[in-house]
């Protein structure tokens, strides 16, 4: 009931009889034809439009996972707000982590237009039934990790997200436009942190290099499994949700990082990075996909810790949410009584 939305899902019919079943089949066919036309024209599907059940399901999964990633992704950085080494950095980091809460909110809203309440999504997350970007299951060990997360993790995220601004599902695309605008500072602040460290004392530079070494491979794996091991990609591309393949985006990202790491005066922990003149694509060394799957399956360094923290916040806040809801109900009752009396 909670997922009432401006751009809500279509009405569900009563259980159909035989004639109605025929009628429904006809409507389904009409809906499918319209949907196919929208895809062919690269136009947008809006929440109340007919859409194939699999399209809805895929979107719901992708958008909610994206939202969960923003919310869980707050934690490794939030842990450093209290220790940020300058007041300017503290303000920047606070604003960034706060933005991530906002981005989670925008995405949950987009997912809600598909008929799933945010509360249900949150329950699934806390129950360990939902996935989120596995990179946030790695620990942020030093201040330089704030730089590496901003530069590499947000950098990879932006590569993924910019094409999503054109996703065929309207609310998702619109959420991504807002998010991309706001995130433009996230990667830059990370880059600046690393640059300051790299130009700082030997200990600071070492800290920066160590962070880049630890976050590089997980960041590359954020683009998802290699194309030949990514069964859902093809369908998502046909639906104009995904615009570029995992490997394509990863290769572009590597190319950008190669340039930028030079400006930083640091190195990428990958001796096999090269530009393939034949394919005109950037290539990188092998990635440990076994580790990726392990972390995704819940066996990463911080999985339990991240979920526990989210659960704790949610549970600790229950009495507050209840209080505000109870107050609103009382006020509405008073308001109604007053109107009745008048």
């Amino acid at each position: 009931m909670a997922a009432q939305n401006l751009q809500s899902v279509p009405d569900q019919p009563a259980v159909p009889g035989r004639d109605e079943a025929d009628e429904q089949a006809r409507l389904e066919a009409e809906g499918q034809a319209y949907f196919d036309k929208v895809m062919a024209e690269d136009s947008r599907i809006e929440p109340k439009d007919w859409m194939p059940a699999a399209y809805r399901k895929t979107l719901l999964r992708q958008i909610s996972q994206h939202a969960h990633s923003e919310i869980i992704g707050m934690q490794p950085e939030a842990n450093w707000i209290s220790r940020a080494p300058s007041l300017k950095r503290k303000a920047i980091l606070m604003a960034k982590v706060q933005d991530e809460a906002g981005h989670g909110l925008y995405l949950y809203s987009a997912a809600e237009t598909l008929g799933q309440s945010r509360d249900k999504m949150m329950d699934d997350l806390i129950a360990g039934k939902a996935r989120y970007s596995s990179i946030f299951n790695y620990p942020a060990l030093t201040w330089a990790d704030m730089g590496a997360i901003g530069w590499l993790v947000d950098g990879a995220a932006i590569c993924n997200q910019v094409p999503l601004c054109r996703a065929s599902y309207g609310p998702y695309g619109r959420a991504m436009v807002r998010i991309c605008k706001e995130e433009s500072f996230h990667q830059r602040q990370g880059f600046e942190i690393l640059l300051e460290l790299s130009n700082g004392t030997p200990a600071q530079k070492q800290m920066a290099q160590d962070a880049v070494n630890r976050w590089y491979a997980p960041a590359l794996m954020m683009f998802g499994p290699p194309d030949d091991d990514s069964p859902n990609s093809k369908q998502s591309m046909a639906w104009n949700i995904k615009r570029f393949s995992n490997d394509e985006l990863r290769s572009r990202f590597v190319g950008m990082m190669v340039e930028q790491v030079r400006v930083l005066g640091l190195t990428l922990p990958d001796s096999e990075v090269r530009f393939n003149e034949e394919t005109k694509k950037w290539e990188h060394g092998p990635l440990d996909w076994e580790e990726f799957k392990e972390v995704l399956a819940g066996r990463g360094p911080c999985n339990a810790q991240r979920l526990e923290r989210r659960r704790e916040a949610h549970d600790d806040g229950a009495w507050v949410r209840e209080a505000a809801a109870a107050y609103a109900a009382k006020q509405a009752r008073k308001h109604a009584e007053k109107e009745f009396a008048a």
Partner: peptide, 14 residues
């Protein structure tokens, strides 16, 4: 538009 608590469930009119 009516709401739907879940994708699969039918929704009541508001």
């Amino acid at each position: 538009a009516s709401s739907a608590g879940d994708v699969e469930s039918s929704a009541a009119k508001v």
